[in-house]
Write a protein that binds this DNA or RNA. Structure first.
Lengths: 264, 264
DNA sequence: CGCTACATTGATGATTGTCAACAAGTGTGG
DNA sequence: CCACACTTGTTGACAATCATCAATGTAGCG
């Protein structure tokens, strides 16, 4: 289905390739930025074991990424949303290590990895982008490992809520009222908890007046209390990250003034 | 001390740089491979918050890497040993996110990141090496996250023992008898357990006859039983990784036949 | 409307953390 | 050489957190 749509778009890279230089400093990424793929609710963008060929950048929608161990257990490792890069896990071995499944009818940019490599080789900015995407994934993992090994259930859920809030805020939506896309089970898997524990703690937070819950509709009422529960400082800002999407949802690159080889 | 030694070696990159082409297919990496740094027992190779300038490859010794969260809690994220790459966590932000501390009197290769970047830009192999080092870190993290969120204490310890065994084997040492370098507390931190739990389970495995423990001296007696405890399949081999050190402990690169730009 | 997936809540127990005491090993200084 | 402090490791008793099992409620969807 949408796999067919993707194929149809993949069939015309040459056509996209001959749009040559763009003069502005911030330019849409070409030709890769032209390739898009729609992913329908519940559909798998790529699966573990499949050969790795392209990276993706989420344009709209929310996904879950699943890491599965040899013995067959599965864990949600993240909830990629607009602006996040997908597929990095395949770079090492050439085989995807994760499943990525869409919660919504989503749309992603398709970045054939061969082009990414060339872009990285030819431009300092491309190199930096790719490398940072990888490194950020590492620090993200470390943060999550800390949560999984040290934080208590109450903290985990509070951190999850604050994290989602912050991500929605960055996407220009409300930070205090949003609809979660994922089930309690997926949240639990992500946080290393059982779904019942997640449900109980959400109810608990609601009784305390910190949040309001109605199924997947969440309203954060008392950020200070949530920060207190989370055991973190409210000002524990991650270093600022240059967004990969412009406000219109287009893939952008910042051309380097000092980069003579940047001629894509 | 060892910082001084490193500085003295850093002072002569030009001298090393003019050794031109090596004819063999496997060549020592130059000039970066010439730079080494000694790290003494208990010394910090680099610390979180320090500016990132170089990558390291462990030549001899065993380290622990520590991730610390904003609220001050610390977790051991790994036990880097010979052949492992250190410092990748600094690439994203330019600031190290981890502390890395040596258990032994160790020695590392110093790879100034500017040179790594150039190497990556100029050679396909360099690019691949760097990217794979990053991506491998990601899959390693995912594996560990699975362990932290799903495995029970018994499984974690069994997995830890089998993992250490496999790593010693790859370094050419015995896979069934080795001396751990780290304390029970560090093992516990790494596995998301209390030190008492680690100690108890080691004792338990010994009573069952799976292993023999004498402080940090470990002998694995029944691999099959350990695999059973671990809940994993014995054949769950990670895809083979080209080693970064040759048997003599020198840093090596494999020259690409198909890489015209590989002229370092 | 009924099926199905998802969510909530309660009761119970297992796993593991916490606290505490003690043993063994190591290094230091008198 | 011994006494001493200090770190590390072991083991036990107990408590707390969270998983498990089970029942019920609710919302979406053909």
């Amino acid at each position: 289905m949408s796999g067919g749509a993707a194929k149809a778009q993949r069939a015309k890279p040459a056509a996209a390739a001959d749009r040559a230089v763009a003069p502005s400093r911030v330019t849409p990424l070409k030709p890769a930025g032209r390739l898009r793929r729609r992913v329908r609710r519940g559909e798998t963008l790529f699966g573990a074991g499949e050969p790795f060929a392209t990276l993706f950048v989420v344009r709209v929608g929310c996904f879950k990424s699943l890491a599965s161990s040899a013995n067959g257990q599965v864990q949600v490792t993240g909830f990629p949303m607009a602006g996040d890069v997908l597929g990095l896990d395949g770079i090492d071995t050439g085989i995807h290590q994760c499943d990525v499944v869409s919660y919504d009818n989503a749309e992603v940019f398709v970045l054939p990895f061969a082009e990414c490599e060339q872009w990285a080789r030819e431009t300092a900015h491309g190199q930096r982008m790719l490398r940072r995407a990888l490194a950020r994934e590492i620090t993200r993992s470390h943060d999550h490992m800390l949560l999984l090994s040290a934080a208590r259930a109450e903290q985990r859920v509070a951190i999850f809520l604050l994290d989602m809030s912050e991500r929605y805020r960055r996407l220009g939506e409300s930070r205090s009222s949003f609809a979660l896309r994922m089930t309690r089970q997926d949240i639990g898997s992500y946080l290393g908890l059982q779904l019942e524990t997640v449900s109980r703690l959400l109810s608990h937070f609601q009784r305390e007046g910190f949040i309001q819950v109605q199924g997947r509709e969440i309203a954060l009422l008392d950020f200070q209390a949530l920060w207190r529960m989370s055991g973190r400082a409210p000002d524990s800002h991650r270093p600022r990250v240059e967004p990969i999407l412009d406000p219109q949802g287009n893939l952008t690159v910042v051309a380097d003034a000092d980069d003579g080889t940047a001629r894509m």
